[in-house]
């Protein structure tokens, strides 16, 4: 059956569900789509697959996210809000559907230019963290190594980091349940190849200033989107779709950052 509509979905992986891998999520979404009776389109051919595509680089296994994106093609037009509610109900708690919009012109992938990340470092020393961040920010380039599927790769982790700072506070994010005082890093990273991930920045902090967190860090992707040069933050990538479908009405950009939906 022909595709009647394409919908764009923003979802979160929170709490213990942050341990899902990308493949785990894709199976869970396929099943949720079936349980929710979403009229998903299937690819043609010998082994038909539901037409669900994941946009942008997935948050790594173990990393929580408030801003993952997928696109789904359906054979019957659906109300975006009804689809959001149905899909959210069918997914296990912790995989939460935050927003659905009808796709308009242009590629969503092209709009995901950068990510905002939060790294919580329980039991870490605040003064050391501040010094390490200063050292990192002052460096021209910080070469790190990471084992990828293609083997050990060496690349610069500094240039893609648009901002990196130590922020105050011990509040917990929606996704994580930790109330102890901890150092919180916040950063905006431009999407590049190879991707610079939060753990690469942590590796950089260790190389630059010998800073190493005492316990595993808790990492959350807060937002993804086009870089707003005014604020230095990712803007809402659905902004354009909403503008078109709602006839010019726009969403406040800052409202989605921080994952408080």
């Amino acid at each position: 059956m022909p595709v009647a509509q394409r919908l764009r979905v923003r979802y979160a992986k929170r709490g213990r569900l942050r341990f899902t891998s990308h493949r785990d999520i894709s199976r869970a979404v396929e099943r949720a789509v079936r349980r929710a009776d979403v009229p998903v389109a299937f690819s043609a051919g010998f082994s038909p697959h539901p037409r669900i595509s994941y946009v942008g680089a997935a948050a790594p296994t173990g990393v929580a996210s408030e801003a993952e994106y997928l696109e789904i093609s359906v054979t019957r037009r659906c109300d975006p809000e009804l689809l959001r509610a149905a899909l959210d109900t069918s997914l296990p708690p912790g995989l939460d559907v935050l927003a659905v919009v009808e796709a308009t012109e242009g590629s969503l992938a092209d709009r995901l230019e950068c990510s905002a990340w939060e790294i919580r470092l329980p039991k870490a020393d605040s003064a050391l963290a501040v010094a390490a961040v200063e050292g990192f920010n002052a460096a021209e380039r910080v070469d790190v190594e990471r084992l990828t599927k293609k083997g050990l790769r060496r690349f610069d982790a500094r240039e893609a980091v648009l901002s990196l700072e130590v922020v105050e506070g011990t509040e917990t994010t929606a996704g994580q349940a930790s109330s102890q005082p901890c150092v919180i890093l916040r950063m905006v990273v431009r999407h590049a190849t190879p991707a610079v991930r939060p753990d690469d920045v942590l590796t950089g902090l260790r190389l630059v200033a010998g800073f190493a967190p005492p316990v595993p860090p808790e990492v959350t992707r807060l937002a993804q989107g086009p870089l707003d040069v005014g604020t230095g933050e990712p803007a809402d990538p659905f902004g354009l779709d909403r503008e078109v479908t709602r006839g010019g009405e726009t969403e406040p950009v800052g409202g989605h950052v921080g994952g408080d939906l």
């Binding site: 899902t20 891998s21 708690p93 316990v215």
Partner: peptide, 22 residues
């Protein structure tokens, strides 16, 4: 779980230990 959670970032396929299946 809180004590297990601290170990999970260090193991293969941690999702198998968290439960919460439909």
């Amino acid at each position: 779980f809180p004590r297990l959670e601290a170990l999970l970032p260090k193991v293969q396929k941690p999702i198998q230990y968290v439960g919460g299946e439909l």
